[in-house]
Design a protein around this nucleic acid. Structure first.
Lengths: 105, 105
DNA sequence: TGATCATATAAGCATACATTTATATACTAA
DNA sequence: TTAGTATATAAATGTATGCTTATATGATCA
């Protein structure tokens, strides 16, 4: 289980983790995980300014975590891979358990 | 699968991800995942300066990702939870696949 | 107690990053 | 083409963060 860690690409890993290390980007990821959505739709749902949403979407796209599709004046974003969700689930669960076992961060 | 995401703690999640978002901290995590190790041992193996190792260990400890144990003059660190490894594995695999499918970051 | 080793902390610096405000680009419809 | 909507980008700013150098704390042994 631990031996196959020779294949680990630290750079890619750190890059992806960095992309997941912002609350607003996580909100956006969870938002688009519930279906393909336009930028304005995301802005509405999350109540975050449009330039900030666009900026974070650009980062998420750079990390290949979302797919983009233009349709008329709208640009739709969707989660690139369902595994992103399950990884976030697992990380969240881990965080919960760590907090339960220990006292505090 | 996507519905249980009401329970998600964005703050904790972002905090943990941030801790995983640095190459040196990842190196340290992988290093101590292969057994409990003293600071000087980690310094040797990774060839990173002692203050920098200590600094990152402090962060990892703050995130509860490592457990600490003092024994005489030595301080031993170990991975706090094996799930950390499997999450890193999954994230690494995801990164690989994303890079395969698309063209580049 | 003094000396030495192991580890932690502090100060300083440079860079990265999240955010806001303002503006530009792209598309559509009249 | 003009007006209006949707989205992206640029500039500016404050803050966080990784790293280095220097020093402090803590433990062991003579």
């Amino acid at each position: 289980m631990a031996e196959q860690f020779n294949e680990i690409n630290l750079q890619t890993l750190a890059f992806l983790a960095k992309c997941l290390a912002d609350e607003n980007r996580l909100r956006i990821l969870l938002c688009v995980s519930r279906g393909k959505k336009s930028v304005s739709r995301i802005v509405e749902e999350l109540k975050i300014s449009q330039p900030l949403i666009s900026h974070h979407l650009k980062e998420l796209k750079r990390a290949l975590l979302v797919n983009v599709e233009r349709s008329g004046p709208f640009v739709y974003y969707e989660l690139a891979d369902e595994r992103i969700l399950s990884i976030l689930e697992k990380l969240n669960e881990l965080g919960d358990d760590l907090l339960k076992t220990r006292t505090s961060f």
